[in-house]
Computed example of a mutant assay.
Amino acid sequence: MTITKAEELDGLKAIGRIVANTMHAMARAIEPGMTTRELDEIGRQLLEAEGAVSAPRSTYGFPGTTCISVNEEIAHGIPGDREISRGDLVNIDVSASKDGYFADTGASFLVAPKSPSLERLCRDGKRAMEIGIEQVGSGKPLAGIGKAVGRFASSRGYTLIRNLASHGIGRALHEEPGEIATWPTRGDRRHVDKGLVLTVEPFLSMGGMWATEGEDGWTLYSEPRAAVVQYEHTVVATDRGAIVVTMPG
């Protein structure tokens, strides 16, 4: 989606606030012993109360309201009977629509006691996303996002999952300009149009290179197996940089 009117930005900010508030409320509710289904139910109730509709469920028939991925699961984890334990790394990804607008956000959270190496990975994963967002602006190269994130990842000794990309969003969960690499690429000569709505969501890892699908047809795992974090915002490109619409409030 490319925004051309103020009311479009207002609509995106409204659903962006809803998914952000939902994700952060779910994160605050995490405690050892609860199942991922119970955590997802919190998200379902919050979205429903706001009149928002789960995007993965409505778009793809995903068997859950939100995606909750624990430890070796790196994305698209199905909420179920898995119990969250002390020390777990939990990724929560919330995307939803309201009034015809879609927004998508995600983050990784550690359950105490927290491993110092995973704390560092989380801190740097969030920074990788911020560095990617800094590359979003009218006329800038789309490939600049992956170039900057890749430079940061390499400098800290990390790898990036290279088949889970950012994407256009706005009037649908996934739309033009299609996939946007959050790792260094060659040959992508596309530029950011003013008003373009997109996600920025690098998957930073301690050795993982690819995402592979599990037996359930949804859950993704790192190949080779390694810890992975994801942080994601939905943003709008302007002449002055990016407007982040998935902010709690």
Rank of each mutant, 00 (worst) to 15 (best):
A242G: 12
G139L: 11
I68F: 02
D239K: 15
R151H: 13
Y231D: 02
R162P: 04
S222Q: 00
S108Y: 01
L142W: 04
H76Y: 15
R225H: 05
T65Q: 04
T185R: 10
F109M: 00
C122R: 08
E31I: 00
E223H: 14
A242T: 11
V245C: 10
E223P: 02
G249W: 11
W218T: 00
P32M: 07
I3K: 03
R44L: 09
E175A: 05
L220K: 02
P56V: 02
R86V: 07
K140W: 13
D239L: 11
A211S: 06
S138E: 12
I84V: 07
R156D: 03
H233P: 10
R186L: 10
E215N: 09
H76W: 13
G144R: 13
S95A: 13
K13G: 07
L110F: 05
R44C: 04
E232P: 04
R186G: 14
E223C: 08
P224M: 09
F152A: 04
H167K: 10
T35G: 02
G51D: 03
A211P: 01
Q230L: 06
P141L: 14
R156N: 07
K5C: 06
L173N: 08
G77D: 02
S108H: 01
P79K: 07
T212H: 09
G80R: 02
D81K: 13
I169E: 01
A27M: 08
S205I: 02
K98Y: 13
S95D: 05
T182G: 08
H233Q: 15
V244S: 07
D104Q: 12
S97Y: 09
F102I: 05
T4S: 09
I78H: 00
T2F: 15
K114D: 02
L220G: 00
I145F: 14
S97C: 13
V197G: 00
V236F: 10
S205A: 13
T185N: 07
D88F: 05
R186T: 13
E72P: 00
C122G: 05
W218V: 01
Y221H: 03
S97M: 11
L118R: 08
R37V: 01
P63L: 05
E7Y: 15
I42D: 00
